[in-house]
Design a protein around this nucleic acid. Sequence first.
DNA 1: CGTGAAAAATGATCAATATCATATTTTACA
DNA 2: TGTAAAATATGATATTGATCATTTTTCACG
Lengths: 240, 240
Amino acid sequence: MSTKKNIRIPCTLCPGKEHSLFSDLPREDLDSLSTHKTCIRYKKGQTLFYEGTRPMGLFCINSGKVKVYKISSEGKEQILKLAKPGDFLGYRALISEEFYNSSATVIEEGAMCYIPKSNFLDILQKNPAFFRKMAKRVAHELGLMEQKLVTIAQKSVRERLAATLIMLKETYGMEGEDESNLIDIALSREDLANIIGTATETVIRLLSDFKTQKLISLQGKKIKVLDAKGLVREADFYGR
Amino acid sequence: MSTKKNIRIPCTLCPGKEHSLFSDLPREDLDSLSTHKTCIRYKKGQTLFYEGTRPMGLFCINSGKVKVYKISSEGKEQILKLAKPGDFLGYRALISEEFYNSSATVIEEGAMCYIPKSNFLDILQKNPAFFRKMAKRVAHELGLMEQKLVTIAQKSVRERLAATLIMLKETYGMEGEDESNLIDIALSREDLANIIGTATETVIRLLSDFKTQKLISLQGKKIKVLDAKGLVREADFYGR
DNA sequence: CGTGAAAAATGATCAATATCATATTTTACA
DNA sequence: TGTAAAATATGATATTGATCATTTTTCACG
């Protein structure tokens, strides 16, 4: 707890290297990555990159959690996605050759690896199979984003909150004793509101509503899903 | 007007070949495309592909206009984009190797070219520069979709309608005499509602509101933008 | 620990928009 | 060109969710 800031930590066992995107790169390229990569610890609230700036590299989350968001013209934050260890950030802008269209801020402190743009583009260039994988990933994400758009456009806030809780449980759920699942991510009510696109007070009210219905329980910030099926019902069929 | 259905028309001068995506393919590949391509006339209301089905090729719009949309679980349509001559449809699913995640239906009759999947993938494989261009396109579209999400999540229906009218004017505006612009696309009020994610009645009311404010004029289905700046003001600053 | 600030919770009120009902206009086409 | 069906228009009402105000709780930090 004493030395938290900007310590370089070894990236030799970065989760991103084994899993996901980089998994089947040739040895040579993995070595190149290891050489050029840097890892820095970020504290809660620190920002990896800002919307509107030029991307100079690719981020890979070693530990900790990050929110990726846009700020609307009225100053309201809209969270586009959450990133966890093993996830990469910033490749959309690198591939589209644009500036960042979103910002990324740490919500749980951790170490972030950084691969310089030139190194990443080089490896993309040299490995058609890897490039195909990246393109496939981006195309998949476009599909997810289209689905999110429909959800926000057509579902009620209550349904969206229920759906978000299900999603969070699946992604960040810790197996508890009595198959109750604790959502293990430090999201404030405001963050939650900025994910589903509503007011903070509305989230608070709906959460205590769900609590009354025994769908969830609240222990401070952390939410425990008591009745996943009940939540799914809220998400899919509420009011119809 | 007599022989409208399923007539093969020559694709030698398909707008998609000169402009946009295919513009700098080598001669050889352009010839391959011409050989394998087919063009078929579609009438209003006919569907190019359905959500959930397997893509077997790439569509290119020669003439006419198409809406691309998803149907939510409650049966409501959400339009994701509109496509005009020169635009391509279906590449997201081909690149992500997934089923279509949306449907595409003709809103103004015209001729649609169809490039078999194998032909398209072949050319992608053989031309890294072309593949990079496609990937760049998909990454760019992901950025656009993220922006749309924020708009739908945070702007009022009135603002979204104003913004949509501006967009339509820029994309489908016909230069009129006294710099007034007629939006030249056959969208019903319902279509408009399904673009911005609201009820048809709300669109109708807001349109007549804009008409009262002399921002637009209505001639049947077609909308003429009288005061683009006024609309921009509605889109950006309404009520703030 | 204690304290001040931030977050969460709760209430009251208001505005935006959906929904339902019905009338009017337009359009397709027999 | 007449007619039914679809689209547009308008009104009345209900509902959701935003906003503002205030209290209570939690938490970080000296």
